[in-house]
């Protein structure tokens, strides 16, 4: 059975919008959600629907995985790639990719996106962060004032 599994050459990922990606098994290693599909199936070719991830996002994730799975790339080259990768993204993209990382259960990509998002909200006003995450406050002004007082040290 182990031999059969290792004979899988190509994995087909189908995004929510129907776009199709064919990747090598080592690219999806970090996607635990995908990996569990592969482990359950006992076939040479695998086709996996990912109804929670859109094509554009999946393309970016695959690009990231390819770079990081490569043994030829140096640590510096990967860091440079990470820097550029984040730079070309909009806030929306980051949040969507974070969600995709969560759905695909990708530990290190999730950490990476969380860090990128943290960098955006660091040293910003509460209003900015609410807007960024599109959160509606459900506190009364009194409750908010009380919380501010409770954690006064954080708002200095």
């Amino acid at each position: 059975m182990a031999a059969e599994k290792s004979s899988i050459k190509i994995i087909t990922l189908i995004a929510a919008d129907g776009s199709v990606f064919e990747v090598e098994p080592n690219i999806v290693k970090e996607m635990k959600t995908v990996q569990s599909y592969i482990d359950e199936l006992d076939q040479n070719t695998v086709s996996i629907p990912l109804p929670n991830v859109f094509g554009n996002d999946l393309a970016m994730i695959i690009e990231y995985c390819k770079k990081h799975a490569s043994e030829e790339e140096t640590k510096e080259a990967k860091e440079e790639f990470d820097f550029e990768f984040v730079k070309r993204m909009k806030s929306d993209d980051k949040l969507r990719l974070l969600q995709a990382a969560s759905y695909l259960n990708m530990e290190s990509f999730l950490q990476f996106m969380a860090k990128a998002i943290a960098a955006e909200i660091e040293n910003q006003s509460v209003e900015f962060v609410r807007d960024y995450f599109q959160i509606e406050s459900d506190f009364t002004p009194e409750e908010e004032a009380e919380l501010r007082k409770e954690n006064e040290w954080a708002f200095k």
């Binding site: 660091e122 962060v129 959160i135 406050s137 954080a154």
Partner: peptide
């Protein structure tokens, strides 16, 4: 996970975002 990438005072500031 996002909070944990921030300095602690920045993390604590998120307490007033919502319940």
């Amino acid at each position: 996970i996002i909070l944990s990438k921030l300095p602690i005072n920045e993390a604590a500031k998120t307490s007033i975002l919502s319940r």
